[in-house]
Each structure stands twice: as structure tokens, then as C-alpha cells.
Amino acid sequence: MANIIEMTGLNKAFDAFQVLHDVNLSIAKGEVVVIIGASGSGKSTLIRCINGLEQLDSGAIEVDGLTLLPAAKGRRQASGALQDIRREVGMVFQQFNLFPHKTVLENVTLAPIKVRKWDQAKAETTARRLLERVGLVDHIQKYPSQLSGGQQQRVAIARSLAMEPRVMLFDEPTSALDPEMVGEVLEVMRGLAREGMTMVIVTHEMGFAREVADRVVYIDQGRILEVGTAAEIFDAPREERTKLFLSRVLKH
């Protein structure tokens, strides 16, 4: 299988604090990769580098043939290259980040109309199909504040999918949800994984990780410590730190 994401020698610091140390990771087309690690280990930063929300200090990321390089000192990445990558990479955030001044339908149709230049009819047809799929087609005229957290996150997933991305990034998609709403969001993600979407997921839901992940990446203090299948990582971790982390998160 061809790799759709190729990260080589990634380094990233916030001021004096080195968040990512020489990270190398390749992700194949159709693969579901789950990144686990303690808070502050750099897993969110890593996933945010993939669509350029964080800039690299050194190294390179190639996504679907497009390359992100470190921007020159003190400058932002040229926005053209960034937009090209972001069109192909969907992102789902911990805090949903739906547009509060737009209805559910408008949230989902906005980017396809403005970025993909679809006409209204095509964008709406696609949006209805996607909202149907995440079980929210009855709510299309509501505003985000009228929905529960789980519903908002499902809209956010539909909004990303409307751009027909090649890759979907999930940055702790269930961490801000009440426990009873976690299941409905994971169910949507499970469906995507079954259909062969390439997914990179940062999560604390270990049961879900074990179930959907083709590979699990354990990151510790900004370094990738261990990569393997779910069975390898969860049942037979090689590294002491991985064992320690798993014993902490799986205990309860």
C-alpha cells in the first residue's frame, strides 16, 4: 500500500520546551492509526502538524503528494500550500468548533461552496446525505447551541467529510463529551474506519483504539516510543514506559 502521510525528522518546540523530538511516521492509505500517550506527551501537537495548525521547526510532512516544510523564521507558511493540504485533510476537534452563527446545514455546506466551488444544490445534497448518515438529518435547521455535545461532534464530523477528504484527523474527539454521548460519536468513527477512510486518531478511549486501530503509536515526552498493532501494544508492550502508561489507563 502506498503511504498517504510521510513524516520525517519532525521537531517542534514551543519557546524553550521541545514538544516533538525527531518524529518519523508513515501512514498507509486506508490505515487507521491511533496515537496514545499521557497528557502533554505531544500527541495533539503531532496531529496538528499534519494539517499545518502547528508549524514545524525542522523536518517535513508529505500528505498525498503535497509537502509541508518549516516556514522561514518568524514567517507563516505560505497560505496557498497550506490550503491545498487542508482541502484534503479533515480535522475533528475536541471542542467541536462548530460555527455558532450558522445552522447545522450551513456548517456543513459552507466549505464545499466556498472552497470546492460547488453550487448550493450539490452542497446541500451532499450535506443531507452526510447528516443522514450521522443521524442528524432532522436537525439541519438548528443552531449548534441547540444540540447536545455528541450531536455537535457528529455535525463536526459531517462538516469535515463534506470536503471529501483523503485523510481524517481526530484530536481527542470524545474528551469533551458526557460519558453517555461518547458511544454515538465512536459509532460514526467506526463506520468511517470500516469504509476504508485513512484516519489518525488521538484518543484516551483504549477499548475503541484496540477495536479500530490497524496500528497504535505510543508517544512519550515528544518521542515515538513504540509502534505496533493493537494486539502488540496492548497485550505485549515491549517498552517499560508503555507498560506503565497502559497499566495506569487500563486499571479503571
Partner: peptide, 17 residues
């Protein structure tokens, strides 16, 4: 909030859009 900008730009919208 900065999350709004990030969400919008993650969808491929330009800074001016």
C-alpha cells in the same frame, strides 16, 4: 475563539474567507 479560525482554515478556507 481561536478554535473558530482553526476549524475554518482546517476546511481549506483562506484567511480572508
Amino acid at each position: 475563539g481561536s478554535g473558530q479560525r482553526e476549524a475554518s482554515e482546517s476546511l481549506g478556507m483562506s484567511p480572508s474567507q
